[in-house]
């Protein structure tokens, strides 16, 4: 199976509360924050690796994993990281962040899919900077491929995937025939979430994503990384969404520590009036 994984780098999500919004609110300032791969995209890479191997012998790839990012030169570091964990090749579509919106990324990905001809596009359900949750769905529509969003489990069946989706009220299972677009949710990296055809049903992965060993990091430098111009993939580069200003959320003032349960109940009843 050949899998394409779009991968975005975002400002360190665990410190998203340290972003700054200068007076006037013309832009969001993320200086001082480290770039990290979007966690959901890291999960998508891990999922792609699990689907192209026998879990018991993860050094042998049965298939191909191609990672792609849209961004400036420095985003190649994110691609190299993915190559080091096991992806086979990478593509960087040269673009500044401000030149992109979700629909443009989706249009360009469509062309890239037509070139690369993967059996599956696996991606994060959302990039945790913009929190949009849109590109996978848009891409699936543009391609006319079946879609399974918010995947928590994936089981490969001949030519199809059985996907357990986390939706409001429970878990909804879909069977999608390949080629398809699947977006992943948090639980996809649990030990028993993903089974390729080769992996034994009793096999258990370690929780979370795999890390690259030092030799793999060195080898990743030799793996192919191509650069493509955005205009080659989408002639229409017009943005459909434009941000004018930004503002911080209203600050919540820290409250008080109460001494015990009776004190708490008394305050909830008489002060906050919520009981």
């Amino acid at each position: 199976m050949k899998i394409l994984v779009p991968l975005k780098r975002v400002a360190d999500p665990d410190n998203a509360n340290k972003i700054k919004i200068p007076a006037g609110g013309a832009a969001i300032d993320t200086t001082g924050l480290e770039w990290k791969p979007n966690p959901f995209d890291e999960y998508a890479v891990e999922t792609a690796l699990r689907l192209t191997e026998n879990g018991a012998t993860p050094k042998t790839r049965a298939g191909e994993v191609v990672v792609v990012t849209f961004g400036p030169k420095e985003t190649e570091a994110t691609l190299r990281q993915a190559l080091a964990t096991g992806a086979d090749k990478a593509v960087r579509v040269d673009a500044k962040d401000g030149e992109l919106d979700g629909a443009l990324v989706a249009r360009a990905l469509k062309t890239l899919v037509e070139r690369e001809k993967p059996d599956l596009v696996l991606m994060g359900k959302q990039a945790v900077d913009g929190d949009s949750n849109q590109v996978g769905q848009m891409l699936a529509r543009l391609l006319g491929w079946p879609q399974a969003t918010f995947a928590a489990t994936i089981k490969e069946e001949g030519g199809a995937l059985l996907v357990g989706r986390e939706v409001d009220g429970g878990v909804l299972s879909l069977r999608v025939k390949l080629p398809a677009v699947v977006t992943v949710d948090l639980r996809i990296v649990a030990p028993t979430s993903v089974y390729s055809k080769q992996t034994a049903p009793t096999f258990k992965y370690n929780e979370g994503v795999r890390f690259a060993a030092l030799p793999a990091i060195m080898q990743a430098k030799k793996k192919p990384l191509a650069e493509v111009k955005l205009a080659e993939l989408s002639a229409d580069a017009a943005l459909r969404i434009q941000y004018s200003t930004f503002e911080p959320p209203p600050a919540r003032k820290a409250g008080i520590k109460v001494k015990d349960v009776p004190d708490l109940v008394n305050r909830l009843k008489n002060e906050a009036k919520v009981l």
Binding site: A11, I19, I28, D131, R240, F246, P248
Partner: peptide
């Protein structure tokens, strides 16, 4: 219409318009 959207785990609100 100007829309207000939460971003960055609710640490910023962006005001946006759609061009279409």
């Amino acid at each position: 219409l100007v829309y207000k959207r939460p971003m960055f785990a609710g640490n910023a609100y962006g005001y946006c318009t759609l061009t279409t």
